[in-house]
Design a protein around this nucleic acid. Sequence first.
DNA 1: ATGGTTGCTTAGCAA
Length: 263
Amino acid sequence: MKIATWNCNSVRARQTRLLEWLAKARPEVLCLQELKCVEEDFPWAELRQAGYHAACNGQRTYNGVGILSLEEPTEVLRGMDDGVDDGQARLIAANVAGVRIVSAYAPNGQAVGSPAYDYKLEWYGRLRRHLDLRHRPERPLVLCGDFNVAAEPIDVYDPAQWDGQTMFTEPERAALRHLLGFGLTDTFRKLHPGEPGRFSWWDYRMLAFPKNRGLRIDYLFATAPMADRCQGADIDREARKGAKPSDHAPVWADFRWSTDSVL
DNA sequence: ATGGTTGCTTAGCAA
């Protein structure tokens, strides 16, 4: 079972690339972030034509997350259902083939110390509580998305320059570690231990991509039953090349898991 | 060097 995640930076601006990537990669599940549209403007028909069901949590202009899957997703949950109404569409969850799939778009945080930065740290705490209340680490779950935090120096092209900057501050890294403390494994790093220079996001500016000046901030985190079955994981850097790319590359992981796997 | 690029929406914001 191949599961992927991609911050597409507008599903409408990326529609052609999205369909091309799905045709080539054929993941069972693709989690999307930054749809930047309401559900009425989501390309339902084109994706269905390509063989994919979809569920999305849309928002005008900003944010927006979705789950595409070959099998129809069930038990769809939009948001964290924790009583906080912040108006930001950053989470959607659904069951696909007996696996709980969560597509998440963490707040960017803007400047350190800004209200957006504080909101980011709070959002991480809410997500951990959401997992604690609604899920168990012994059950199959894959939490995918753009987490807007680089976990370790190896995930940053110039850790010294990035030290203390948004996406690589100690409070953000601690918030990410606390999230993983639920019982989640970083599938890419499990399969590529110690491999440097492997990033998932590159700024559009300053020739960051051709210079490989990026960060690894997009992840597939899996609970033990899924992490134990992970047999491959990678970042599709090719998909960041060419005209009109997203600033993120798709990331995927493959699991020894089928529809009739029962835990 | 406070630059540079993209998307949405239409001048300014968020990333």
